[in-house]
Computed example of a mutant assay.
Amino acid sequence: MKRTSFSGQVADIDLKLLRVFKTVVECGGFSAAEVELNIGRSAISRLMSDLETRLDMHLCLRGRSGFQLTEHGELVYKTTQELLIDLEKFRANVNALHRRLVGELTLCLTDNMLTDANSPVTEVLGTFHQQEPEVKINLQVASPNEVERAVIEGRANMGIIPQHHLLPGLEYHNLHTETSLFYCGQRHPLFAVPNAELDMPLISKHDFIAPSYTHLVLLKEQFPQLKAAASSYQVEGIATLILSGQYVGFLPEHFAAIWVEKGLMRVLLPTTLNYQVPFKIIVRRDARPNLLRTALLKAFSAT
């Protein structure tokens, strides 16, 4: 069958092909997009070829040198982002005409929140789905900075982050508070030191892991004695270094509990070395009205 070139009218097949193209670009290539799209590389290649035929232009280069967009590909990717955001705005406006909520809402969570018993996220999402079964939740997990970026760029309707600063483009809503304590691993010299002999001068002699994310400024002000010898952007990275037996550092209490229970970590000076982090729901300040976002925010505020 002869394929027809793109005529200026966007059909359902065009939207499908553009969504595949957007995913491939954001994954950095065909191989990485296989898991995200849940289809094989050959099928992705075929769909991309169909899109290039529909648009009558070459969108990307793929080969031994890796995946790379052409100039046309860069422009089509940017336009695709704008198109899909506009479609979501259209869906949100149509929802305003109905009493029932229908559509898709993207919520982006900070990683390593699941073990926090103080977090109401799982309870709220479960109740929300019972009350609004026709709303599809697209749940994504990323680092705090990536969550902020997704909300600001309009790729996520809402985000949940540990608050460390206030960005003018975001609105912040209270959620819960997380407690972090100070730990060493089983193989660390401090692990066997009695509590009565522990103090800040002794602890400050040991290599400290500085979190490269939100709380570093806060920690420098609150605990200036601690000198960083390593750093990590992820909570799991800090835990890995602590378990190596060569470093000490802060971890969320809920996250470290599994290793404490197994005797692989120990809390050091919990009444002194601790800090609280408020978790906030964030939405873009200038975002257009969206019934789905408003309904989920209302569900969170009711907890």
Results as ranks from 00 to 15, higher is better:
residue 107 L to T: 06
residue 129 H to P: 06
residue 193 V to S: 04
residue 202 L to E: 01
residue 175 L to I: 01
residue 49 S to N: 08
residue 100 R to I: 12
residue 25 V to E: 07
residue 262 K to E: 13
residue 13 I to A: 13
residue 54 R to M: 10
residue 200 M to T: 15
residue 261 E to H: 08
residue 109 L to K: 01
residue 56 D to M: 08
residue 178 E to V: 05
residue 134 E to W: 06
residue 93 N to G: 05
residue 291 L to D: 02
residue 210 A to K: 05
residue 117 A to R: 13
residue 173 H to L: 10
residue 170 L to Q: 01
residue 39 I to C: 11
residue 251 L to H: 06
residue 241 L to V: 02
residue 134 E to D: 14
residue 37 L to Q: 11
residue 262 K to S: 10
residue 107 L to D: 04
residue 220 K to S: 08
residue 53 T to F: 08
residue 120 P to Q: 02
residue 35 V to L: 09
residue 290 N to T: 00
residue 239 A to V: 01
residue 109 L to P: 00
residue 178 E to N: 04
residue 176 H to L: 08
residue 297 L to V: 01
residue 43 A to K: 14
residue 76 V to F: 07
residue 247 Y to W: 12
residue 154 G to S: 08
residue 246 Q to N: 15
residue 120 P to A: 04
residue 4 T to R: 13
residue 103 G to Q: 09
residue 287 A to E: 12
residue 97 L to W: 11
residue 157 N to L: 03
residue 81 Q to S: 13
residue 51 L to D: 02
residue 262 K to A: 15
residue 207 D to L: 10
residue 224 P to E: 07
residue 40 G to Y: 00
residue 289 P to C: 10
residue 134 E to F: 12
residue 279 F to W: 07
residue 302 A to C: 09
residue 244 S to E: 09
residue 200 M to G: 08
residue 272 T to R: 11
residue 86 D to S: 15
residue 278 P to N: 11
residue 189 P to M: 00
residue 204 S to C: 10
residue 197 E to W: 06
residue 80 T to M: 07
residue 273 L to G: 03
residue 209 I to T: 05
residue 170 L to K: 04
residue 206 H to C: 03
residue 158 M to G: 02
residue 102 V to T: 15
residue 242 I to T: 05
residue 276 Q to P: 01
residue 106 T to E: 06
residue 252 P to W: 00
residue 66 G to P: 05
residue 250 F to C: 02
residue 165 H to I: 09
residue 193 V to W: 06
residue 75 L to D: 12
residue 60 C to W: 03
residue 15 L to Q: 11
residue 235 V to L: 10
residue 62 R to M: 07
residue 243 L to F: 09
residue 74 E to A: 06
residue 265 M to L: 15
residue 129 H to N: 09
